[in-house]
Design a protein around this nucleic acid. Sequence first.
DNA 1: CGTATACTTGAATTGAGTCAATAAGTGTGG
DNA 2: CCACACTTATTGACTCAATTCAAGTATACG
Lengths: 251, 251
Amino acid sequence: MTNHRFQSFGNQLAQSRPHGVGNPCEACPVRDMSVCATLSGEELDRLNSLVTRMRVDREKAVFYEWDAAEHVYNVTGGTVRLSKMLADGRRQVTGFVGPGDFLGIAYSDTYAYTAEAVTPLSLCRFPRRRLEALFDELPGLEKRVLGVASNELRAAQDQMLLLGRKTAVEKLSTFLWKWTQHTLSQGGSLESIDLPMNRTDIADYLGLTTETVSRTFTRLVKDDVLELPSTHHVVLRDAERLQELTESQQG
Amino acid sequence: MTNHRFQSFGNQLAQSRPHGVGNPCEACPVRDMSVCATLSGEELDRLNSLVTRMRVDREKAVFYEWDAAEHVYNVTGGTVRLSKMLADGRRQVTGFVGPGDFLGIAYSDTYAYTAEAVTPLSLCRFPRRRLEALFDELPGLEKRVLGVASNELRAAQDQMLLLGRKTAVEKLSTFLWKWTQHTLSQGGSLESIDLPMNRTDIADYLGLTTETVSRTFTRLVKDDVLELPSTHHVVLRDAERLQELTESQQG
DNA sequence: CGTATACTTGAATTGAGTCAATAAGTGTGG
DNA sequence: CCACACTTATTGACTCAATTCAAGTATACG
């Protein structure tokens, strides 16, 4: 197994600041996408007083499945891979999360999954206990978190359908289709979709092997559905056909 | 199939009643297991004023995936099957829920899945909007719902690991192990575990075919892990071995 | 008691996995 | 900028776990 070492939280990270004007949340890239979106300026100050901003290097863990769940994180930049492992090393990637998404909302002593950096990350870290205490004073915040959890639950159920019932072509097509939609919603273009994760990550997300992911990419290229100018770069040639392939594998 | 009959709660359908003494929640079989557990008598009255108690026959739907999500349900008796389907009919069962569990907490206009009765059901039904309005007055309730959602998320991630990475023997063993734990926590015995769902339900839950489920049952019986006195009845002969089989398929 | 439905078992098939050999990137230091 | 080592991705040949197709056998129920 790869040797995962923790990155030091320290000099690289900006410490939290006093309340009032100049709240760094106001300039946050995910100010309007995240749970923070519902909060007023003053409420944001309350939240800001709890936050520690930090960075995590590529392929380093934010936390492990077995760690005490002491913090909750909000991603402000980069892509995080969530995964679970069996004792013998078989891995399932349960999701990829990006700017605006929350990490670690588990009502349990330990996290439910391992969170690792696919790309360099910037995060806002909150002490879980104190954030939960803040829920009592800012009920809008708790509602928002419940909304986030509910959306994640829906995504998890879609993924169960994919893992349990879809073929390799349908799995990869679904992944690429959703990733494309996600990219577009963040202002990307169909002409060049960036896949920050590697083939192993994709395979472990789709319940396949890297070989099968690779062969399936090749097939989609041969069928003129997409081009692969580089391994981490996809150009969609036939978006409609890709969407069709997400549910039926005639071809 | 085993004939699950309900110990009847009152007559066929007890309507909601005025507040005060004699609140039927006080006598509810799931009074202490469910989200209701945190509520005081007076708070329970508030909740009770919203509730409609109802029954659903075996194999009838409580709601479909595409229905407008107007109600939230609390199961007071019976087993519910949650599932999603692809256009061509392939089905994935995403979970089985029983007494004390919640149904339909989706922050969306439609439900995320179809809910159907595996056995006859008794349910408490709440209008979603009014229940959400009540959250503002009973913050303990919202916390509890968030806790439930968070547990479901964890279960969903475990299921993704199972669907993506486990073998047929591991899948069935995991299912039987968890179902046993669940049964025991409800006061059942290792000597006779009731499986209300049929082989197709189990197959669709584990991402297998009924044939494979059947063969795998046969194998576990041959290996003296369990006995099958009838198709819906399991007797555990070697619980420890069953647990081992949930993560490693040697043998 | 007969008939439909659910379950089991067997034989043949197949989609994805495994093992193995390139090929293509990626980064490092000279 | 190139040569080297190393990692990641692709491709091919073969295997195998689970599916499909096809009987049979229980079981439930009107």
